[in-house]
Structures are given as C-alpha cells and as structure tokens.
C-alpha cells in the first residue's frame, strides 16, 4: 500500500531524514517511534506531499509522490502535528468544508459528515466553534477531518498527545477499530501506545531507521542477550566475587540490600541459559537464593537501547 524508497531530506545542515525505506501492507498499522527531532513528522510530510524529499521516492496506493501528488493526497487522511484547525469556523462548517474539498458528492456530504461526527464522538459539541472546543474534542475533530472521505490510508502524527488517560484509551480504540480496514501510519514517543495499537514499529533516530519489526520482535532483538534478576542471601563482597566468576555475565549491578538479601541485575550477551549457573554457584557456596528470574525486555528498553546506541 505504501512503499518508501531511500528518501532523504535536509533542512540546511540538519539531516532530518536520511535514506529511509520501508513498506506498509494494506490493513497494517505501522508506528513511528523516536525521540524529539528524529524525523517522524518530516517523513509524514513527505508522504502527504506537503514537502518534497531531496532524494528517493515513495508511492501511496499506487501513486507516486513526485508524479501524482494530488492523487496521493486524495488517498490519504492526514492529521498533522499539533492538529492545526481553523479556530473561527463552526465545528460542522469545518467538517463540511473538508468534505467538500475532498470531493464528496454534494448529496452525500451531509450523511458522511454526520457519520464521522458520530464515529469520533463529537455529537455533543455541534453548536460550538472550533476555538471553543476542549483539547480532547479538538483532537477528535482532527481525526474526523482526516476520516471524512473514508481514506484508504491514514497518517496520524501523534494522535493522542496531550490527552487525558481516559481519552487516550478511547482514541486508541478508535484507531484500532478503524485500523481493521485501513492502512495506518502513526507516530509517537510513547511506547505503550505503539505496542498497544501497532502491528509493526519503525524506530527512527536522528533521521535514520535504527530498528523495525513487530513489538515482540523488537523486544527480543534489543540486546540479543538476557537480563536476570537474582536475590541472594550472603556476604556482599563474596557474593559479588562469586558472580564475577561466571564468565558469561557481562554486567553485574547491585540493586540494594534488605534484611541481608542482596538483589542483583545480571546481564549477558549470550543466549545460553544462565540462571542455572547462578543457582549452582550460590548452592556451592552455601548461600541461599530468594529469587531468580529472567526479566522480559519491554519496548522501553529497546527504544532507549537503540536510540542511545546510535548516539554513541
């Protein structure tokens, strides 16, 4: 549905996007994840033909962004960053304007507008001007505006930013519901957000693609290793020495002590099971083990890992 090939974009000396390529299949929800200034919005603006890439190309629903920008835009519903809106228009007037500009036949405008207003839960606000809406309702209006022509592709730049947790869940559910039939790209800094809504995640940092995969794949690729949590009762220095005696542990972190139990976070680059070695070492020394488990790595770690590794 969307194919991006080697796009790059510079703003003066800032390399906003560097040689990014990816594909999105029909019906997929793709998340862009990355810290501030990573190039997420820039990539989205290139796809919606708001700005042009310096090099590389992309196609959306079969239309090339350089050759057929108007067709590309026709296929896309877009919620730009910061959700810009015409503040002095009425809510209905605004959605109708977009519907007309989106070439919805005159006879169908009314019913279509009512439909998206219902979908986005805006019925209670109909009489208000856009400028009078609360932030959450503005965000819904931004979504309604993007959905009004029933686009095949939705591009949403930080759709839930600044909403309260309740609203975030509602908007996420809305996106999930829409995502069953549509191809969606959304961006976020918030990890639970992408793992909750996306089938696939691209991690972008400083304009480059630093990782991609399903949320689960990314989690497992992060260190290529493991993290073990251990609680050991025994004399601190000797326990530490004992742990250091296990070759494959690359990093040993003492997390603290309570009631004579020392807690450690142990990292290893190897994929071999290390819990056993820890167990035997403790048993041989005559200490006791109060806890021992493999920590599952979450997206948060992957994100920090991938984006800081790049920076080093």
């Amino acid at each position: 549905m969307i194919a991006v090939e080697n796009i790059s974009k510079n703003f003066g000396v800032t390399k906003a996007v560097q040689d990014i390529s990816f594909k999105v299949e029909k019906g997929d929800v793709l998340g862009f994840l990355g810290p501030n200034g990573a190039g997420k919005s820039t990539t989205m603006r290139i796809l919606t033909c708001y700005i042009s890439a310096d090099s590389g190309t992309a196609s959306v629903a079969g239309f090339n962004i350089h050759e057929n920008p108007v067709e590309v835009r026709r296929k896309i519903g877009y919620l730009p960053e910061n959700n810009p809106l015409y503040m002095d228009m009425g809510l209905l007037e605004y959605v109708k304007f977009i519907a007309q500009m989106r070439n919805i036949p005159k006879a169908a405008v009314r019913s279509r507008v009512e439909q998206v207003i219902g979908m986005c839960g805006l019925e209670s606000e109909l009489s208000k001007d856009v400028g009078e809406l609360s932030k959450g309702f503005r965000q819904r209006l931004g979504l309604a505006q993007a959905l009004v022509h029933d686009p095949e592709v939705l591009i949403l730049d930080e759709p839930t930013i600044g909403l309260d947790p309740h609203q975030i869940i509602e908007i996420r559910n809305l996106i999930k519901a829409i995502g069953r039939e549509k191809t969606i790209i959304l961006s976020s800094h918030i990890l639970p957000e992408v793992s909750a809504t996306c089938d696939r995640v691209l991690i972008i940092n400083k304009g480059k693609l630093v990782g991609s995969g399903t949320p689960q794949e990314l989690a497992s690729m992060s260190h290529g290793g493991q993290v073990i949590m251990a609680g050991i009762r025994g004399p601190q220095q000797e326990v530490l020495a004992g742990l250091k005696g296990i070759d494959k542990l690359t990093d040993i972190k003492h997390l603290g002590e309570a009631d004579g139990i020392h807690r450690f976070e142990l990292r290893s680059d190897s994929v071999e099971e290390l819990s056993e070695e820890v167990f035997f070492m403790v048993a041989r020394s005559g200490w006791s083990l109060t806890e021992l488990y493999r920590k599952s790595i979450n997206l948060e770690d992957v994100f920090l890992d991938l984006t800081t590794r790049e920076a080093q």
Binding site: E71, Y78, P80, P84, M101
Partner: peptide, 14 residues
C-alpha cells in the same frame, strides 16, 4: 501561523 496551511496543502487540490 495556525498551521492550517498544512491541512490546506494536503487536500487533493492544486
């Protein structure tokens, strides 16, 4: 200033 130019310029118009 409002940023609505981004809405306007991503509509399917020339």
């Amino acid at each position: 200033k409002l940023g609505t130019i981004e809405i306007l310029m991503t509509l399917p118009v020339k």
